[in-house]
């Protein structure tokens, strides 16, 4: 490993760790809800086997994709990964804004747990090797894990030295959620998922914009510090949008009451 890959500035590494940690936290909480439901209703052996197999497959994907991306032309990769990261970040940010404004309902882990529990009970039959439970656990861990893998690989793709900080952020989130799941044995409904999505959306949109800019040959003033400036810019834009959205919701409600 050469000095260039080791020399990762804190301006770049800290947002990478935070973005990967918070994004992974959201995805891990969603996966944990379903795995807990499967474990509680169909048995822990099948639930843990399914999740374990998915985690091994996901680690293999990260191990294969990381070095492969490092061999791609940097400009094309920055533009492609930057665009995908931007679309992903803007999607989360848009949804978080609409939820904060009260236009879209908040995600409810307790309701998701109750719904999955009822579905699993209705399946009936509960043998020692429960294929449905193992596959269900594998599927949810893979689906939510793919999002985590994308974020980790995308953040690490712009600079090979960032793959490690991003991976550490994701692993820290996984360890935290698993530990909380083991201790609490119930869905983590009190995790402020929308606030996390808001923060991650801001960070990923900033990373994405920075990557797209670099891919197009823009030399950002302040180099890596531009990511922080972009994050502040997206944060202010999002807060302004929430304020304007709430204003419009109140106005619409007042108009509706007048008509009634």
């Amino acid at each position: 490993m050469n000095a260039a890959t080791m020399d990762v500035s804190w301006a770049h590494a800290t947002p990478s760790i935070l973005a990967a940690f918070f994004a992974s936290l959201v995805e891990c909480v969603e996966a944990l809800t379903i795995v807990l439901a499967i474990g509680a209703i169909r048995g822990w052996r099948s639930a843990l086997c399914g999740s374990g197999a998915a985690l091994i497959l996901l680690l293999a994907i990260v191990a294969a994709l990381g070095p492969a991306l490092a061999r791609c032309p940097i400009g094309i990769m920055q533009l492609t990964i930057g665009t995908l990261l931007l679309l992903f970040g803007m999607r989360w940010l848009r949804k978080a804004i609409l939820r904060a404004a009260g236009v879209v309902p908040l995600h409810d882990e307790a309701a998701a747990f109750a719904k999955e529990t009822a579905r699993l009970r209705a399946l009936g039959g509960n043998s020692r090797w429960d294929v449905a439970a193992t596959f269900g656990s594998f599927q949810i861990t893979m689906l939510e894990g793919i999002e985590v893998v994308f974020i980790v690989v995308a953040i690490g793709a712009g600079d090979t030295g960032l793959l490690m900080p991003a991976s550490l952020g994701a692993i820290a989130a996984l360890v935290l959620v698993v530990a909380l799941g083991v201790v609490l044995h119930r869905p983590l409904a009190s995790i402020p998922e929308n606030s996390l999505k808001f923060v991650v959306g801001v960070l990923l949109a900033a990373f994405g914009t920075f990557g797209v800019g670099e891919g197009l040959g823009i030399s950002w003033p302040g180099a890596d510090w531009a990511i922080l400036a972009l994050a502040i810019g997206f944060l202010l834009t999002a807060m302004l949008t929430i304020w304007l959205s709430r204003l419009k919701v109140v106005q619409a409600a007042a108009t509706g009451m007048e008509r009634a």
Binding site: L93, I97, L98, A101, T241
Partner: peptide
């Protein structure tokens, strides 16, 4: 930023 703001407000 303009795209984000305008799309959210249009949705609202």
């Amino acid at each position: 930023a303009a795209i984000l703001l305008s799309h959210c407000l249009r949705h609202v």
